[in-house]
Design a protein around this nucleic acid. Sequence first.
RNA 1: GGUGGGGUAGCGAAGCGGUCAAACGCAGCAGACUGUAAAUCUGCCCUCUUAGAGUUCGAUGGUUCGAAUCCAUCCCCCACCA
Length: 401
Amino acid sequence: MNIEEQLDFLSARAVDFINRDDLKKKLEKAAAEGRGLRIKYGADPSAPDIHLGHVVGLNKLREFQELGHTVVFIIGDFTGMIGDPSGRSQTRKPLTQEQVAINAKSYQEQIFKILDPEKTEIRFNSEWCGKMKFDDVIRLSAHVTVAQMLARDDFSKRYAANQPISMVEFLYPLVQAYDSVMVKADLELGGTDQLFNLLLGRELQKVMGQVPQCVMTLPLIEGLDGVKKMSKSLNNYVGISEPAREMYGKLMSVPDDLMWKYFEYILCWPKDEVQAMHAKVVNGELHPRAAKDRLGQAVVKRFIGEAEALQASEEFTRIFAQKELPDEIPEVVLPAEEMGLLALMVQAGLSKSNGEARRLVVQGAVKINDEKVSDPRMQIVPEEGMIIRSGKRGFVQIKIG
RNA sequence: GGUGGGGUAGCGAAGCGGUCAAACGCAGCAGACUGUAAAUCUGCCCUCUUAGAGUUCGAUGGUUCGAAUCCAUCCCCCACCA
């Protein structure tokens, strides 16, 4: 690849890219010196489940690695241990050192499903932040003005709406920017919501006498609901370590319109190919379900395996299209004593309370051995192999013990 | 330091002495319809038993036959002005 091709390749799918010329210079210089660039990516240590939303960024990092660059994966443990009171969405609880360590380990296991460990440098920002004295912090904050901070969309809106903004929130972008200085980042990658923070990194590097980093943002993809950004707290995510059938099932529930985005940003299919498929669906040549099946299988294949992908797809059809039973049903051990149906369901883990169980029964969601039961007062004697089905997803097989 | 506004079920938000387990919206769950998609319709959505009962409305104590609603004290949050 010549340099222009590299630039095209690296900036594909990016929303913001600041800027091509700077990156070109950096690439040329690095090539001349026979080294790779340092690509920074920051991770929040409180959410150890990597999901498809993260994959969008990780894919890009991987592409940088393919061209020989180094990914500096920063785990924001320092900030994570302080917590984030940014009231609006929700409070992030401060993490303990143990939790951070556990999460960090889990992170590594997961990101290396995508990244090349040989070209990844994992750093914790407590390494430098932890050493800073209060006067260092004050000096650092002298570099940024309130007006600059208020330039951030999020802040200005909240300020205008008389909503709280804590000092901590002002400080965090600064910490993140300082991270860039400390790892001498050549480019920082993030979601579009990170643009301000990434740019602040540029500013700070300039002040500290470094060549400012390039900045690249990638879209935040919507989660399963098709509206809100995929995130763990909204529980609309697909984790990359989920069991195959879960992963597949979740993907099948994605609104149709969203799947094209998933093809492009998660699977990195070429844009024209995605568009071609989209067109086929629009003109009726391809059933949307078939297209989504391809998506589901492709994602499962990528993170788990081809056989599992096929199996997940088949089982899905069996359970939901043909309403048959899955081939593995969780077993619950119960004594062979007569008990109320509701109690049985609670004990079998099919419902959280008797009330919920009653609701399910009354609404006709419960089947025992494929026969609908509708009397919540029913008494049951559990039998070996008895299968209780609750709704579309709840299955339990009784084992006497 | 001053002024004003708040704390209600997972979230948002009504209620402001009885008819309140508490409107409404969102989320969630189930059923119908489907491609477990979306949209739509129906029902459910604190806990426990059948109609019924028991715990809820920041905390504690009080006034009342009766309080989420009134009073007192306390805790917490927010904005504005200094």
